[in-house]
């Protein structure tokens, strides 16, 4: 599992390095994720170590974003004065975009793009 964790950290560092050197406007983590998928597709298999390390990290994803989440309660005064616009944009905007995504995707899938279950 630690060996798998090392692989994840290395890919992350590789992504960060690429991002810093080539000034790519995408975070090192996402670059690392794409490199990881491509590498696995190329290799055509995955070690147990890597599978268990990634499963472990994914299952605590919520734990990792919590420190950022808690900030909302301590920076709430930044919403002051504009809270109506912010709340309407977040709630209304997200509602509309969720509906659009689901509708659009299910529509395109039904049109015959997605063969094979």
């Amino acid at each position: 599992m630690l060996r798998g964790f090392l692989v994840l950290v290395l890919f992350f560092l590789l992504g960060e390095a690429l991002q810093k050197v080539f000034l790519i406007p995408v975070s090192g983590g996402v670059l690392g994720m794409m490199l990881m998928t491509l590498t696995l597709m190329f290799k055509g298999g995955i070690s147990d170590d890597l599978a268990s390390a990634s499963q472990g990290l994914i299952s605590v994803l919520v734990l990792l974003i919590m420190p950022g989440v808690v900030g909302v309660f301590f920076t709430a005064d930044q919403f002051a004065g504009q809270w109506l616009a912010v709340a309407a944009a977040l709630l209304g905007g997200t509602f509309l975009s969720v509906l659009s995504t689901l509708w659009l995707m299910s529509r395109v899938v039904r049109l015959g793009g997605g063969k094979g279950e």
Binding site: F11, G29, T37
Partner: peptide, 16 residues
């Protein structure tokens, strides 16, 4: 929060 980086990379595995 530092672990968020490797965790993002880990998402590449279910993707594969």
């Amino acid at each position: 929060t530092v672990l968020l980086g490797p965790a993002t990379v880990a998402l590449g595995i279910p993707l594969y």
